[in-house]
Simulated scan of single mutants.
Amino acid sequence: MDKKTIDKILKPESEETQKSRAAKVRATFWKTVRKAAGHIPFMEDVVASYYCAFDPQTPTRVRGILLAALAYFVMPFDLIPDMLAVIGFTDDIAVLTIAISAVRAHITDAHYQAARKILEKNPIETPKK
């Protein structure tokens, strides 16, 4: 996936688009996390990003970037469909990595603590090989 495509995906959109993305992410995030377990090595960062995206203290631009990346993550049909076993999450990994790197300073210890707490409380099963 090239930088131009990733930049287009992560471009913050209108408030209406962000609300739509937020609704999609809220509705399917945890199901997608369980499905992606074992394929995304930085799941704690992804879950912390989720908490950051819905934190009212997070700046609007940062929320927009994270919601765009998380919406791409939860979409079942993207550039490389997630149904394609191992390679299906490679494009999601690229988008999430760039988004998280771009806004890492806004993902706080509180977001990471919430991520660890939920991941410890509800361990994500890794797929059987």
Rank of each mutant, 00 (worst) to 15 (best):
T108A: 10
R116S: 15
A99N: 05
P12T: 06
D82N: 08
T108H: 01
P123W: 07
C52Q: 03
I40L: 14
D78M: 07
M1V: 14
A48Q: 04
E16N: 06
A99S: 10
D7N: 12
A102C: 12
T108Y: 04
G64E: 02
L67P: 03
A99F: 06
K3Q: 15
D45R: 14
P76F: 11
V103E: 01
A48W: 11
K117A: 13
E125F: 09
H111N: 02
K35T: 08
I9L: 00
L10G: 07
A110Q: 11
P12Q: 13
F77H: 12
Y50G: 00
F54C: 05
Y51S: 05
P76H: 11
I80L: 13
M43D: 00
A37M: 10
K24M: 08
T126M: 13
P59C: 06
G88S: 07
N122P: 00
D45H: 13
A23I: 05
T97D: 12
V86L: 10
H39V: 03
I87W: 05
C52G: 00
L70C: 03
D91F: 08
Q113P: 02
L66I: 03
L67K: 06
D91Q: 13
V33P: 04
A115T: 07
E44C: 03
A85M: 12
I40F: 12
I65S: 01
A53R: 01
P123D: 09
S20R: 02
I9W: 02
I124Y: 09
K4P: 02
G38H: 11
P59G: 12
E120D: 13
S101M: 07
T90P: 04
R26M: 04
T5R: 15
L70M: 08
K11C: 11
I40V: 14
D2S: 15
Y112S: 02
L119Q: 13
A71T: 04
V86D: 13
T17W: 09
I87E: 14
I124L: 12
F29P: 07
I87G: 02
I80T: 12
D45G: 13
V25T: 04
E44P: 02
I9E: 01
E15L: 10
P59L: 04
R61A: 09
L119Y: 03
K121D: 15
L84R: 03
P81D: 12
R61K: 14
D45I: 06
P41H: 11
F42Q: 02
M83F: 09
V47T: 04
I100F: 01
T108N: 04
R116N: 06
P59Q: 14
A94C: 13
F73N: 00
D82G: 10
F77N: 10
V74Q: 00
P127N: 11
C52F: 05
T17R: 10
